[in-house]
Design a protein around this nucleic acid. Structure first.
Length: 262
DNA sequence: ATGGTTGTATAACAA
């Protein structure tokens, strides 16, 4: 079984690349973030022809998360139970969707960006991660053998090796101590990064800004992660970051992250 | 040069 996560940055503008990623990696499950469309706008025709089912949660042009699966989609959950909204008045956001696919509970997660340190969105980001940690801790408490994958765009570089220049990020989000602590708290709850052992750093990234020729200059960030529960982590036999997908005209600014299970 | 690029509800936007 093979599962990938990818911040696609608009599924409508990149459906051909989505089909290519599914085929190239022989994916059973693809978790997407930033689909940037409502449920009724999702381009499903080619996917259905290839035997894939869809669970999508999209409300507007900004967010949107999806699960594409050819091994079934059961018990779909729109958001995790304690997930907070954002804004004034507080509005729900399409940043998490969960389902059981082929016996694995998968979550496609689009963690809030944070925008700027101490911006209201930054505090929302930390609250969002704290509530995810609390819920995920409960899932493992209910069933220590649960096979759960928390995967997506975390908008956090957990270590200095995960950014191209530490000095550049001073005073910016994604690398601050509270964000890194929030990420580590989920690791401490029992969810381990199953990709890093197969893609050791530094200099290994999943995201490159569109501007400033960041990709050809190899100036990226590792911010997309697949965190697995203990029972699922023990099944992982391989993982890779599909840097090739970032090349060429019409690429997303993120690369797919692919995990292979026994 | 608070600059560049890309997405879409084309905005005094979000990423």
């Amino acid at each position: 079984m093979r599962i990938a996560t990818w911040n696609v940055n608009s599924v409508r503008s990149r459906i051909d690349r989505v089909m290519g990623v599914l085929e190239r990696h022989d994916l059973d499950v693809l978790l997407l973030q930033e689909t940037k469309c409502r449920d009724d706008q999702f381009p499903m025709l080619d996917l259905a022809a290839k035997g894939y089912e869809l669970a999508h949660h999209g409300l507007n042009q900004w967010n949107g998360v999806a699960i594409i699966s050819r091994v079934g989609i059961e018990d779909v959950a729109v958001g995790f139970p304690s997930m907070p909204g954002f804004g004034e008045p507080i509005a729900p956001e399409a940043r998490a969707i969960g389902a059981t696919c082929g016996g694995v509970r998968v979550w496609s997660l689009y963690i809030p960006n944070g925008r700027e340190i101490d911006h209201p969105h930054y505090h929302y980001k930390l609250d969002w991660l704290s509530r995810l940690r609390d819920d995920a801790t409960g899932w493992l408490a209910d069933d220590a053998d649960a096979q759960i994958l928390l995967a997506g765009d975390w908008n956090i570089a957990p270590t200095d090796d995960d950014v191209w220049d530490v000095a550049f990020f001073e005073g910016r989000t994604h690398v601050t101590a509270p964000e890194r602590a929030a990420f580590q708290a989920i690791v401490d709850a029992g969810f381990s990064d199953v990709v890093r052992p197969f893609t050791p750093g530094p200099g290994v990234y999943t995201y490159w800004d569109y501007t400033q020729l960041r990709f050809p200059k190899k100036q990226g960030m590792r911010i997309d992660f697949a965190l697995a529960s203990p029972a699922l982590a023990s099944r992982v036999t391989d993982a890779m970051i599909d840097r090739e997908e970032r090349k060429g005209k019409g690429a997303s600014d993120h690369a797919p992250v692919v995990v292979t299970l026994d």
